[in-house]
Structures are given as C-alpha cells and as structure tokens.
Design a protein around this nucleic acid. Structure first.
Lengths: 337, 337
DNA sequence: GACGATCCTGGAACCGCTTCCAGCCTGTCG
DNA sequence: CGACAGGCTGGAAGCGGTTCCAGGATCGTC
C-alpha cells in the first residue's frame, strides 16, 4: 500500500470495449455460458489476457448472491482452547478440501458475546455462503441463529440435545467400545473409565461405548469418574478411582491427555503399566507416542473430520443431495495395553 | 438451509419507504453521517428496528470498495505444520484484536501451488482489505505478489533477505542473548547452542544472540549444531555436540522442542540436568512445563504477536501512521538452568 | 423584510458484474 | 420461396448499497 501504483484493475466494460463486443457477451465468455460464437470468445479471451483482467469478486458476489466464502465457527467459552492442535488439524482438513474450489475460509472464534454477535451479523448479512460449526456446548444459541439464517450449515461433532440435519462426527461410541473390548480381550475385567465432560456428546458417547462393551461381556461397569478431557482432570479422576477400586486392572480414558494424567498417577502409586494396570486412551494425539509407556489409544482423524465437513457443506451449497457422516476410528496398539 | 423460510432480508429501499424518506436519507442515518434531522433519524431507526433490517455486506463492499475482511496467510510447504499450536496462538491474538472491529478473518493456508494461486487471485480481485503474512521462507514469491497488489500488508516475523516496511516480530536476538547470559551468570563457560534452521530469520537471529553474548563475555562460541526446531532434530544435534565437546556444561536450544530432545539425550548419556549440564530453551510452549526437569526458557507471547500484527494492519487500512514492532521476550526460570 | 449562510433533503449516478429479453441473423424444411 | 427454429447478440434492468449535487426550507442578521 502507501506508495504502490495500485493501477485500477480493468473492468469488464473495458474488456468488452477492447474486444469490440458487449459487456454481456464478455460476461458470457467469462462464465463459460452457452450461446457464444467462437470469434467472440477468442476476442474476449485475448482482451482479458492483454488487459490482465480479473473479475471483481465483490461485484460478482452482489450479482450472484454468492460470496465465495464459507465460515468455520468455533464456539467455546475459552478462546485459549483454540490453541489446541485439534483445531489446527481441522483447519488443515478444511483447507485441503477447499483447495480445489474457488471458496475461501473465514474463521470465527465466537467465544465472547461480542464474537457471537459478530458471527450472527455475518450470517444475517449473508456475508458467507455456508457455515461449519464446532465445539458447541449444549444448547448454544448459535444453533438457532444459524437455523433462522437459513444458511447451509454443517456441524462438526454432534451437539448434545439437538440433532442437526447435517453433521460429521467421529465414531466415539464405536471407538470406546473398541478400546474396552481390547482390554477385555486382554483378560482384564476390573476395567474403570475416566470420562470426558458428560455434558458433551463426545464425552457421553465414549462413556456409553465403555458401558455397552462391559455389559455385552456380561460385566457391569466397574468404576466411572468424570474428567474434562485435560491431563489434570485425568490425574484427579485416576486418584479417586484408585481410592474406590484399589484392585482395578485396566483404565479406559476418554482422551489421551487424561490418559497421560492417569499414567502419571499410576506410576506414583507404584502400579506398573501394563503389567498391573492396562491403559487405553482416545484421540491419538502426538502426546500418545511420548508417554511412558507409549499409549495404546483410539485413533480418530481430525483432518478427515474437517475435510468431510467441508465436502458435505459444498454439496449443500451446490444444492445437491448429501448426508451426515460418522467417521471410523481404530485402535492403535502401543505399550500401555 | 433447505426447508428454511429464508424470508428475504429487507433492503434499504424498503426501510426508506417505511420511514417515508429517501434511500439516501436512510443511508445517512445508517452511517451516522451529519446533516440528518432528528425526525428523520428517528423514523429511519424505527423502520430499521421494525423490519429487522441489516445492511447487505456485499452491496456495501461494492460501493465502498472495502470488503471488511482481512486475510491471514500462512505460507509453508508443509500444511501439517499448521497443526502446530503456534498458529493457533497467533489466531487467538488476531481474533481478539479483530473483535473490536467490524472486520472478519480469512485464513489462507498457502502451502501448495494451488493455494498460492488462490491467494494471489484473492488479492488481485481485491477480495480483502489487507493481509498478514507468516512463515515465509526466504524469497517467497508471495512477497512480490503482495507488493504488486498494493494492499496493506504486515509480516509476522521478519522474512530473511527482505525487509518489509511493516512487520511485527519477537525479539529473537535479545531473547537468545538473555538465555546465554543467564547461563554465563551461572558460571558456565562451555556453552553450546542448538540452532533452528539458519535459513529462517528466527533461527539465524537466535544463533546470533548466542554468539554475541559469548563474545561480549570474552568467550568464543563453544559449539554450534543446526537443527530444524523439532524435537528429533534437537536430539540429533545434542548427540553430535556431546560427541564433539564431551565436556560441555550448558546448552542453549533455539526452541523448546529441541530442548526437550536434548534433555532426553542428556539423560540417556547419564548427564544430570542442571547439575552437569544446564539447559535453556526458547518459546515457552506448554511442553516446557512438562519436561524433566521443567525447562528454563525464553518466553515470547505469540498471542501478542498476532494482536500487534493486527493492530498495525488496522492502522494501515485506516490510512494512519504506524510502525513496525519488536516484541520483548523474557526469561522464565524453571528447573533446567 | 431582504439576504445569505446553514441545514436537510431526494434524485441520480455509480460501484462492477449477471441475466433476462427482444431482435437479428442464419440455416433448414416443407 | 416463405415460415420457423435455432444460435448470437447487445440493451437494459437488476443486485443493494454510497455519495455527489442541486435545490428547498429554515434560521439569524442587518
């Protein structure tokens, strides 16, 4: 800026004039519309090249009522949470899916009230063609706003208490079942679980998966303590579980971070892993490779989540049929179980 | 979408009609322009409220030639790198600064050629009002494109080989000097450094800081090994340094991740930290609190970096005077030195 | 009471593109 | 040879705002 010669971009009118055709003809060439003769096309294309013409995004958006922008909204009370690599992964996935289109990504951290109202305004002023929502807790007012705005919307991770028409989620239930079944397969029976926040769908589903697996094996859930997905909460939960059930022989933690906390507490308590207590986590974050012993865990691909959300959103925007998706999870065997 | 009643948003014309004034009058009220009577203002404001009117973003953008969007472009060959919490922090900072404005954030991962050309197109079609650039390596063609587009631009972290007019950076040089001086103050003299990629400004500056501090203390740099900021590279560098200089008594690693790698290798080699070897890192990431022993490191606030970049960009967009910035770093003492 | 100066006002142009539509030209068929 | 069905074309009306400008109303002043 500042000193730049910022020569005004040529307009479509100038292109048309140079090519000796009307503006509408030029526009047709630009949009590869039918009913344009070879001669016209060539002339316009040459003029475009010579002038270095590029269509003005905003003008086109106004005429077509399509902004060429999709939003990714992350709604959470704590903006710091966004620093979690989780969202970075989502964004990488979203970007890769967007790469093949002409759409761009608008990122909204709707944590504060101000952030929410900015997002609301963006939706209501039709500032984006569609929106992806993540990390909604419970009955986030955002869901209403989105619905009222009547905009294509895809949810990442089912919100609790509300089944959106379109969402993409990891198979939390299946993953938790997988983990628990693996522990059962190892001959463990006194298996406890450290859950994530039960106020989130992921937290609840992973807990349900554990319960179902136990029951299917003819056992009853042996011990349940609620955490909030963080390492500290995992440690605390582990302590209370050891207290209540000193003879436990396996732990399924609903996140790697909590599993890491649990490992720490177990080692302090003199239990050896996996000999005395087998531990399985969930997420397969980088930390899972660095714990001692390395953590057996349930892998979910966050990038795929972002990619698939985007794919569904694109279909929606294009007005095509599409459907929600549950992404598979799989067990990654390392040393802890 | 789909079933939504998506009732068309009212337009300014409808507001004007309802208020019984002209569209221009209504527009004036909307923009708090002078020369509008009390009566007109009231009537228009009432009509706006009754109709639930919201100005159309795109139309306004076309008329004012201001999109209300700023871009954050992250240019790096490896899109995975974006999953690093670093960028999450930047984004949190940027968002917080944007929160008080009417601007929104467009995120561009310009890693692939396709990503770059999309970004180029975005700039040339005036799809954004300004841009912040990060993680440019060497002579990224992006810098030319940005300059030619004549758009307000701010760089995060000085690129090497090119001094942008506006940038915000952490005080890498000062921080590295601080770290080295701390080690010197501890009485260590056989201090080695594990550098980041010397092809980046941060890597080079941190190495220079180490050198300068050593020289100012009347010493010569004792040992230098280049890493690439990752833990694995830190471990490798540490091994080769131990090999060359078995009697080293301190290490300054240019990143916490590399310091973590170094700590691992030192412990394998039977050196105790900080007794035998003192270690200082750089960045003050979460990992610094979890190493054994906890890592003494140079703190830089990435959020501030994002926030300040945004502040400078906003000034630029507003056409006000502004200046580049170097953000201070400080030493955080923990167990390793 | 006449006269600017000042404040408001609505009309109209404009931002740059898409798209509908009427009209032209051509070619084909009966 | 006349009628008709196309394919192409440019004019014009949009998309929904902002902003310039000329003119009318209002005011205070001499």
């Amino acid at each position: 800026m500042g000193t730049g010669t910022t020569r005004r971009q040529p307009t479509l009118d100038e292109v048309a004039a140079r090519a000796g055709v009307s503006r509408s003809a030029a526009s047709r060439v630009l949009n590869k519309a039918p009913h344009v003769s070879r001669a016209t096309r060539d002339a316009v294309e040459r003029a475009i090249k010579e002038l270095g013409y590029l269509p003005n995004r905003t003008a086109r958006a106004l005429a077509t009522r399509q902004t060429g922008i999709v939003a990714l909204a992350i709604s959470h009370d704590d903006p710091e949470l966004f620093a979690d690599p989780f969202f970075g992964q989502v964004i990488v996935g979203v970007s890769s899916a967007l790469e093949e289109t002409d759409l761009h990504l608008l990122l909204c951290l709707a944590s504060s009230g101000r952030g929410r109202s900015r997002l609301t305004n963006l939706l209501n002023t039709r500032g984006v063609d569609g929106i992806m929502l993540m990390a909604l807790h419970g009955d986030d007012p955002l869901t209403h706003i989105v619905r009222r705005a009547g905009l294509p919307a895809v949810y990442g991770g089912k919100p609790l208490h509300f089944k959106p028409q379109w969402y993409v989620d990891s198979d939390n239930l299946g993953g938790a079942r997988l983990a628990t079944e693996h522990l059962l397969g190892l001959g463990r029976t006194r298996i406890v679980t450290i859950t994530g926040e039960l106020g989130t769908e992921a937290g609840a589903a992973r807990c349900r998966g554990y319960r179902e697996a136990m029951i299917m094996a003819g056992l009853t859930p042996y011990g349940v303590a609620e955490g909030d997905f963080t390492e500290a909460s995992g440690a605390a939960a582990m302590r209370s579980l050891l207290d209540e059930h000193p003879d436990l022989d396996a732990v399924f933690a609903a996140s790697d971070n909590m599993a890491a906390g649990a490992l720490r507490v177990l080692s302090e308590a003199g239990r050896s892993v996996p000999a005395d207590v087998a531990v399985v986590g969930f997420d397969d974050l980088a930390i899972a490779e660095r714990t001692d012993p390395p953590l057996t865990t349930v892998h979910q691909s966050i990038q795929s989540l972002g990619k698939e959300m985007t794919r569904v959103l694109l279909e929606l925007i294009a007005g095509r049929e599409t459907a929600s998706l549950i992404l598979p999870t799989r067990l990654v065997l390392r040393g802890s179980a």
